[in-house]
Design a binder for these strands. Structure first.
Lengths: 240, 240
DNA sequence: CGCTATAACTGGTATGTACCATTAATGTAG
DNA sequence: CTACATTAATGGTACATACCAGTTATAGCG
């Protein structure tokens, strides 16, 4: 089980072993782990080394310790997909509503000044402009405008856009997606938003703006999503 | 500096001491910390104990280690930097502006229905109501209303509220803070917000609502922050 | 002067030991 | 049988020591 000659640290081997058993279901949530002293004797390693492995797994929330009682498998190791931010689709499903999309525009246009600077490309460079309406139970909830550098992301079609843009970029173009920054701001609906979202003048809008980068830091995508303030809120879960 | 007779563990005393020096500015971001062996000799404690303290601070992102080089103060570790969300204070500093607070109200009031349900307490239970204005360069940017269960968090004073509520809860009350959920929504300013933020009628407001829980899931705090939409945006960094 | 081998640092891994505080099981006296 | 004390288990803290693996300054050689 443990290879003392391996260049991989013993505590790390033990971590992987325990994680494996949790994932395979050998250790079930709520179960108690063998005690630190048992592990140490069983594997013929020091108790302090066992503690090092367990401490790391406790920090990663796989396990938790109770003094005098033992070490236990944590109930559910939360899967945070992208930070704690819930996506529109997930969120709507969680509320028992049927989410859907409607593509209203897909074309190549020259980049205006502000978009060009956000995408770090020259003004008037070609960019894809993709407009979508996001609906819940067929009621418009948001207008989403995505802008993608056409010189960087080539061969985009409306089909790709409707399935998964990110998957296309990583699998077909072999580019790695990196970090994203997201901005939240409150505004008043402009004409375009009024029209597509079917809301009155002066309605408040929750505007989410995201800039996504490749792994090397090159920005490739700007997304501007205008949410009806009366129908939608963003939720974010924060861990300590 | 270190009291070996104290019931407080030595590694914890050292943690607090280092954190204190970071907060006071004695240790600046990017600086290297004294080496583990130096600390051990200086304080007449074991190097392993020093490592225990430093390891914890590394996990909390106060410090980072580079093998062969040393241990360094992390560039930006802010008070309650939960996930990738930038706080008002840090954000204003990053923009080269001077952030400040003004406490405008601190009292115990009976909980209204919606707050009572969010805090999971009976209606009319006593809660602290704390109103603060957040300013940048002495211009009001946000009205922040914090509501705390008075039966859960006892002995709160305006001084504590002005320094660090979270530290008081964890260090003095010995309660552990857990997760938080944060909601972003866009609204139109109400009378109170108009008055405190000195903005015209129908101004858009970015409203952030946070519910913070203890480790056992009990909610203890509701924060409602109303930001001037023309002056403030929330930024969130997302890692893949 | 410039290069290189070395020495003197740094943190990383691993061992063994000791004793403490909390918890649960066990034994014993009433 | 219950109530209480004892004991054995757990994880928590702290110590001393050893050696490994990177990094950097330096002494010394060509």
């Amino acid at each position: 089980m443990i290879d003392k000659q391996s260049p991989i640290p013993i505590y790390h081997q033990l971590e992987e072993q325990i994680k494996g058993k949790i994932e395979k279901g050998e250790y079930m949530p709520g179960d108690s782990l063998p005690s630190e002293r048992e592990y140490a004797e069983e594997l013929n390693i020091s108790r302090m080394t066992v503690r090092q492995a367990i401490t790391n797994l406790v920090n990663e929330r796989y396990l938790h310790r109770i003094k005098g009682k033992g070490t236990f498998i944590t109930e559910k190791k939360f899967e945070q997909n992208l930070s704690g931010l819930t996506s529109f689709t997930e969120d709507m499903k969680a509320r028992g509503m049927k989410p859907s999309n409607k593509l209203v525009n897909f074309e190549i246009v020259p980049a205006k000044k502000s978009l060009a600077s956000q995408l770090n490309i020259p003004e008037h460079s070609p960019i894809y402009e993709i407009k979508r309406i996001r609906l819940a139970e067929d009621i418009p909830m948001a207008l989403e405008r995505t802008y993608v550098s056409a010189n960087l992301i080539k061969g985009l079609t409306d089909d790709i856009v409707q399935s998964s843009l990110y998957q296309y970029i990583e699998d077909d173009l072999q580019l790695k997606i990196g970090k994203a920054s997201q901005l939240f701001e409150a505004t008043i609906a402009n004409d375009e938003e009024m029209e597509y979202l079917n809301i009155p003048e002066h309605s408040p809008i929750l505007l989410m703006r995201r800039i996504t980068q490749l792994e090397d830091g090159t920005p490739f995508e700007v997304v501007k999503s205008a949410y009806r303030a009366d129908r939608y809120q963003f939720m974010l879960d924060l861990e300590r």
